[in-house]
Computed example of a mutant assay.
Amino acid sequence: MKVLIFYHPDADGITAAAIVRHALQQRYGDVRFEYIRHGYLGEDRRLQELRPDGHTQIWAVDISFRPETTRRLQCAFGPDFVWIDHHISALEAWRDTGGRIRPASATRLTRPHGSPGTISSPHRRRLP
């Protein structure tokens, strides 16, 4: 199996990519990994070239793609495409497009800085 890990090159993105690698190695054993740094200013051209082959998984951690790219990958790869992003802004951007899948946002599950029921700036709001 081959795993492409698209990650944001900062502390939480690198850590998330390492956790994904560790978990998949533990689960599947013989896995080939390719790490692809991804920033916020543009998308890697390989995203448009990816096609399902039955042997490749795509993981996106601590980043978001353009909504149309995310939709295309999810439709093409199904469960072999996994998107993990803790930024509430990513979830909001996805909802604004009328997206059909419902990604989870870890910020909805946490209460940072010991402040029950709030999310810290810049996305300050009450948790449900």
Rank of each mutant, 00 (worst) to 15 (best):
W83M: 00
C75R: 14
D44A: 12
E68L: 10
G29F: 05
R66G: 08
G117R: 11
K2A: 09
A23P: 01
D80Y: 04
G29K: 06
L41N: 05
M1L: 15
L24W: 09
L50N: 08
C75K: 15
I84S: 04
R46H: 07
S89Q: 14
P112S: 03
D53G: 02
D10I: 07
L41K: 08
T107F: 05
R71G: 04
I63P: 04
F77E: 04
H113K: 11
D62H: 04
R125Q: 15
E68G: 06
P112M: 05
F77W: 10
A104R: 13
H113F: 14
D10G: 10
W83N: 00
R66Q: 12
R21Q: 12
D30E: 14
S120M: 14
R21T: 08
I19C: 11
H123T: 12
H87W: 02
V61F: 02
A18I: 08
M1I: 13
R32L: 12
R37H: 08
P67V: 14
F33R: 02
L4H: 08
I5S: 00
G114Q: 03
A90G: 15
S120L: 06
W83T: 00
L4Q: 08
P122R: 07
I63D: 05
I88E: 15
H113S: 07
Q26D: 08
H113A: 13
G29Q: 06
T110I: 14
H123E: 14
R111F: 05
R66P: 02
A106T: 15
E34Y: 06
G99C: 04
A93V: 15
Y7H: 13
R37W: 06
G29R: 07
H123V: 04
D12K: 02
D96V: 10
G78M: 07
A93W: 05
F77Y: 15
R102H: 11
Y28D: 13
D30G: 11
R66L: 09
F65Q: 01
F81I: 04
P128D: 15
A106Q: 09
L24I: 06
Q74P: 01
I84P: 00
A60G: 10
E49Y: 03
L41E: 12
S115Y: 09
